[in-house]
Amino acid sequence: MNNDFIGVRGESKPRLLEVDERKRVIQMHNELLRYLTPVLGEATAENMLKHYCARLNIPVDDIKETDLPELAVSMKPMLAVWLGSAGASRVAEEIARLGKGGVS
């Protein structure tokens, strides 16, 4: 059974929203990794995300759209090490915009 459609009446709406939210959170984590991996590599992208989530007290598997700007700003110095300040700023800006339907 598809979990998205559990409970059609009564409790259905809140649970449906909860499932949607959960999916979005997982999607956000994956999207960030998908975005950083081609540059930083799989391990560094994952470690960096864990490192900054821990520093900002954000559960790594519960990154929300609203966390992205803060996460992006805190990641900037480390990104600058490899990408240069200009590159890091650009990547940070794009990370901050990831939750808003991608980069335009």
Binding site: Y35, P38, V39, W82, A86, G87, R90, E94, G102
Partner: peptide, 17 residues
């Protein structure tokens, strides 16, 4: 090419660096 490659492979628009 470090940065332009990011956009190209992630399916996101390319960086213009």
């Amino acid at each position: 090419e470090v940065l332009p490659r990011t956009g190209a492979t992630s399916g996101l628009p390319r960086f213009s660096n």
